[in-house]
Nucleic acid binder design. Structure first.
Lengths: 217, 217
DNA sequence: AGTAAAAGTCACCAAATAGTGACCACAAGA
DNA sequence: TCTTGTGGTCACTATTTGGTGACTTTTACT
């Protein structure tokens, strides 16, 4: 409790910094922290305010309510998690084969290492929510340009088949990592949390991509 | 338990049938109903009792509490959802290739058509829980005998590679169906809820299995 | 019929959770 | 210095949720 009344201090005044934007960010951070450690079902106003070290009244003042705070959090997250897909639209000499491998492998590691993102994925699976829909639509749109640019052109009338294969692989990447975190990490006898197991999965991903490009062309 | 001896029913007895076993079952059914329609986060005592048309006190009397009721529900479900995997341990002439295709395709349809099972899968992903762990362990064990029987023998030192591939495909089958139900059904441009989209996924599954057996041997 | 055990209901309490009005405190402009 | 806008706290209410003791009703058995 910063009941320190002497605020005449020239500098050392420890009274809480009064900054709306910073406080808003602290609420957003608190959401991420709670989401990561306890899951989306624990995102209650009281707990969020407590984690942020601020009064819950401010959530209503600044965001309008818990839902709007969560919406803002969700949307803010979407920007960060998409950065890693960009940097490899490199050479098109192989129709995007190495790019596809890269993306899958990167995504596999990213999801595996990022519990916060795992929790967001679970949240998307579990709760119908306009802001989830929006984020998902944005991601689909982003994926769409990737597919049309590199794969559709390359695969012609087999484009849809390639997309189906990628859908399976990406889904597998997501599920395996989410699965491994909560109630046991062994799936089909592969320990998804062990380096050896993860290596096997990556090899399987590469194998499937190779075969897709080999046979589909 | 079977206290049902012949009771002198006069007929018109309008009073609720007093039957512990039946009431227990009604609670279990209520859990399934709420889980299916509103998700695991809505599994509250009051609502469950209400859905069952009985007093919540009975939940404490019969099960010990909500948690134990949920545990019993989870365990009971496990029996039903595993039935579909049995009937196809047919000929071993192809090392289990057609069996693998069958299992994946069947599982894809089963999960897609069974929202209750989808919700259980989500629940497993979202909540750490001893009964989930137990069910998952049992499933792993069941899968283990399948793998050792048909695949490990056939693939020799490549057995782990095959398992990794199957892990990816099964995971994909799960995730795609769960994903499609809640916040949008299009993934990688494939509409997972449309017959055409589902057909493409199945073809991709078959393709991958073929390639696995082709190259891994 | 009479009775005891068990099925089932109801009223009630306690804790958790969402939400808000009244207030305090600091900074900047008048 | 005083006033005002606003960041921030606190106390309070209402609702939801979990849990239980006391009671009533039915059944099974003598």
């Amino acid at each position: 409790m910063p009941t320190s009344h002497l605020r005449m201090e020239n500098k050392t005044a420890k009274t809480r910094e009064r900054n709306k934007d910073k406080s808003k960010q602290e609420f957003l951070d608190a959401v991420g922290k709670i989401l990561t450690t306890k899951g989306y079902t624990s995102l209650k106003v009281n707990d969020i305010a407590n984690a942020a070290g601020l009064d819950k009244k401010l959530i209503y003042k600044y965001f309008g309510g818990t839902d709007q705070l969560l919406d803002e959090y969700i949307h803010a997250q979407n920007f960060w998690n998409n950065v890693e897909e960009e940097p490899l639209i490199a050479e098109d000499t192989d129709g995007g084969k190495t790019a596809a491998k890269q993306i899958l492998s990167n995504q596999f590691d990213f999801v595996g290492n990022n519990i916060e993102y795992q929790k967001i994925l679970i949240w998307q699976l579990a709760e119908e929510r306009a802001s989830h829909r929006k984020v998902i639509d944005e991601q689909e749109e982003k994926g769409e340009v990737l597919f049309t640019h590199m794969a559709d052109r390359y695969f012609g009338d087999k484009a849809a088949d390639f997309r189906a294969m990628m859908a399976l692989l990406v889904s597998g990447v997501y599920y395996l990592n989410i699965y491994a975190e909560t109630n046991g990490s062994v799936f089909c006898g592969i320990d998804i949390k062990s380096p050896g197991g993860r290596e096997k999965i990556k090899e399987a991903l590469n194998f499937f991509v190779d075969k897709a490009y080999e046979d589909l062309k």
